[in-house]
Structures are given as structure tokens and as C-alpha cells.
Deep mutational scan, measured.
Amino acid sequence: SLTLTVRGEEAVRRWYKWAQAHNLEVEVETHGDEYVLHIK
């Protein structure tokens, strides 16, 4: 499992696509303009 902090929706989309390509689940938490992604 992997936890990432990114800024901006574009980065979130990029990681989301990456995770889907690897059959992984993604949980997204929003903290202001930062997003915490939990990839499992």
C-alpha cells in the first residue's frame, strides 16, 4: 500500500489512472488544496 500527498486535481487523476491500470483501489482525502491518496 502507498500513501501520497499531491497538489491539484490533475495529479490526482494521473495517479487514479495509474492505480486502475494496476487493479488497485484508491481512497482520496482532501485537505484544502492538497490531496492525500491511499493506494491499496
Rank of each mutant, 00 (worst) to 15 (best):
V12W: 06
A11M: 10
T3R: 11
V26L: 13
A21Q: 12
V36Q: 05
T5V: 15
R7T: 11
L4T: 04
I39Q: 00
Y16T: 15
V36D: 02
Q20F: 09
N23T: 04
V36I: 14
R14S: 08
G32Y: 04
K17D: 10
W15Y: 05
V12T: 03
R7P: 03
E25R: 12
T3N: 06
T5F: 07
E29R: 08
K17G: 06
A21M: 14
Q20E: 12
H31R: 14
T3P: 03
L4E: 02
V12K: 06
E34G: 07
A21W: 10
Y35T: 05
L2I: 13
L24C: 11
W15D: 00
E9Y: 13
T5L: 11
H38P: 00
A19F: 07
W15K: 01
I39T: 01
A11Q: 09
V12N: 01
A11W: 06
A11K: 05
Y35W: 08
A19K: 00
L37T: 00
R7I: 12
V6F: 04
T5S: 07
R13P: 01
A19H: 01
W15Q: 00
G8V: 03
I39V: 05
V6W: 01
E9M: 14
W15T: 02
K40L: 08
Y16V: 15
K17Q: 13
R14Y: 14
E9G: 06
E27I: 15
V12H: 02
A19N: 01
G8A: 05
Y35H: 05
V6K: 02
H38I: 13
R13N: 11
H38W: 07
H22V: 03
E25W: 13
L2W: 15
W15G: 01
E34V: 15
L2M: 11
V26Q: 01
G32E: 06
A11P: 03
T30P: 12
R13V: 08
L2Y: 11
N23P: 01
V28K: 04
E25M: 12
E29N: 05
V28G: 02
L2N: 04
S1Q: 13
T3I: 13
V28F: 07
L4Y: 03
T5W: 07
H22Q: 08
N23Q: 08
L37P: 00
R7V: 12
Y16P: 00
H31S: 09
Y35K: 03
T3K: 10
G32A: 05
E25Q: 13
G32F: 05
R14M: 13
H31L: 12
E34N: 10
H38F: 09
L24V: 06
K40N: 08
R14V: 08
H31P: 02
T30L: 13
Y35N: 02
T30S: 13
R7L: 09
E9T: 10
Y35I: 07
E29M: 09
V12Q: 03
L2H: 07
H38N: 06
E29P: 01
W15N: 00
V26C: 11
L37K: 00
R7D: 05
G32K: 05
R13M: 12
E34L: 15
K40A: 07
W15E: 00
D33W: 04
A21Y: 12
L24I: 06
V6Q: 02
L4K: 04
Q20M: 14
G8T: 15
Q20V: 13
W18L: 03
L2G: 04
G32M: 05
E25Y: 14
A19S: 03
E10Y: 08
H31G: 04
Q20H: 10
K40E: 04
L4V: 15
T5P: 03
K17L: 14
R14I: 10
R7Y: 13
L2D: 03
E29V: 11
L37E: 00
V28R: 02
G8N: 10
V26R: 00
E27P: 00
R13I: 11
E9P: 09
E29L: 09
A21S: 11
D33M: 06
Y35A: 03
V26P: 02
H38V: 11
I39M: 06
G8F: 05
T3F: 04
A11G: 05
L2A: 04
V6G: 02
E27M: 12
T30G: 09
E29D: 06
R14A: 13
A11H: 06
V26T: 03
V26H: 01
D33F: 06
G32S: 04
Y16D: 02
H38T: 14
A11T: 07
A11S: 08
R13Q: 13
R13E: 11
T3L: 07
S1H: 14
E34K: 11
A21H: 09
E9D: 08
L24A: 06
K17P: 01
W15L: 08
T30A: 14
R14C: 15
H22M: 10
K17N: 10
I39D: 00
R13Y: 09
D33I: 06
L2T: 05
R7C: 14
A11N: 11
E27W: 14
V26W: 06
N23Y: 07
V6Y: 02
A19P: 00
R7G: 04
D33R: 05
E9H: 09
T3Q: 08
Y16A: 09
E25S: 12
E25L: 13
T5K: 13
V6L: 05
L2R: 06
L24M: 13
I39N: 00
V28D: 01
L4M: 09
H22Y: 08
T30Y: 11
G8Q: 04
L37G: 00
N23L: 06
Y16F: 15
E29W: 10
T30M: 14
G32I: 04
L24D: 01
W18I: 03
